[in-house]
């Protein structure tokens, strides 16, 4: 390396060192938290997933893929995986359909009550998932508010079986995820200028054509971000499937915890990794495909 002799070069080097130091100080705490609180436990869990489970000894040090083989060769577990994927995709799609019009209205609103409307969207997030699911339980039960109302009105003769079904879980997850989707889409749609919509209309495009040719493509990166966010939350749902799905409906999140309940850490770790990998791969794939199409 050439010796820095000129004062200007020395100044640049000092500034570079200063920027590096500032960047290190700013990034350091967050990096330490992520490494200690997230990456390290994930690495430990990954190692555990190759251990063996012996009922009397719990976890035994080993290097075997038997936990992964067990998961992928047993239809019971693969069915749970496909159920989780189906529920997550369906919830994401429904959230997108329900959230888009609402987000659009919020984004385009000039009302002085706009902040109140946004707060109303955010309000459910103030309540924990388990508490919300408990609320749904009182609504969906065979003698819950919904069935009692429908029976009273004479719409049905026998109570509808909503609790402990996949239907209940889907409704519950949509209710949990919808605000996230609305908020993500709203911020994206606010970034799409109203002018481009008006330009499309002035060139003869109808509302549907404007949506398809202008609004949707411009908002697509945000839509993808919102959808991925919603998908990840649905794939990893725990409280809602546990409380609303009942004992016979299984998703991956409760399955992972179930293995830890049994002290079967190696298999629980393997399932956790299958879930995490599938979620990340599918989310990344969606992102890549959408961006490639846009080019």
């Amino acid at each position: 390396m050439a010796e820095l002799s000129a004062p200007a070069d020395r100044l640049t080097a000092e500034r570079r060192d200063g920027s590096f130091l500032t960047a290190s100080v700013l990034l350091g705490p967050a990096t330490i938290v992520v490494v200690i609180g997230l990456l390290l436990p994930i690495l430990i869990l990954f190692r555990y997933s190759f251990n063996k489970f012996e009922p009397r000894l719990m976890m035994v040090e080993a290097m075997t893929a038997e936990n992964y083989i067990k998961f992928f060769t047993d239809p019971f577990y693969t069915n749970i995986f496909w159920t989780t994927l189906r529920v997550a995709l369906l919830c994401t799609l429904v959230c997108l359909i329900l959230a888009f019009p609402l987000s659009y209205i919020l984004a385009r609103s000039n009302s002085r009550y706009k902040n109140v409307l946004v707060m109303l969207v955010v309000l459910p997030l103030f309540i924990g998932n388990a508490v919300r699911a408990a609320g749904w339980m009182t609504l969906f039960g065979s003698k819950g508010a919904l069935n009692a109302g429908l029976l009273q009105l004479g719409v049905i003769d026998v109570p509808l079986q909503i609790m402990f079904t996949e239907r209940a879980v889907i409704i519950g997850i949509i209710a949990v995820n919808l605000p996230y989707m609305v908020l993500t889409l709203q911020s994206v749609l606010e970034g799409v200028p109203r002018d481009v919509e008006e330009a499309a209309f002035s060139l003869g495009a109808g509302p549907w054509v404007m949506f398809r040719r202008v609004l949707w493509p411009l908002a697509l990166p945000g839509i993808v971000a919102g959808a991925i966010f919603c998908f990840i939350l649905a794939m990893n749902a725990y409280a809602t499937p546990t409380l609303l799905g009942g004992p016979q409906f299984k998703m991956m999140g409760p399955l992972v915890f179930g293995q830890f309940r049994l002290n079967n850490w190696p298999f629980g770790a393997a399932i956790a990794f299958v879930l995490m990998t599938a979620t990340l791969v599918l989310a990344a794939l969606a992102n890549v495909l959408i961006h490639r199409r846009r080019r």
């Binding site: 489970f53 009922p55 009397r56 019971f76 016979q248 299984k250 179930g258 049994l262 079967n264």
Partner: peptide
Amino acid sequence: MTQNDVALKEWWDKELKG
């Protein structure tokens, strides 16, 4: 029970509840 707990739970989940 300790020796068979995992197997019993698997039976419970797969056969009885499945």
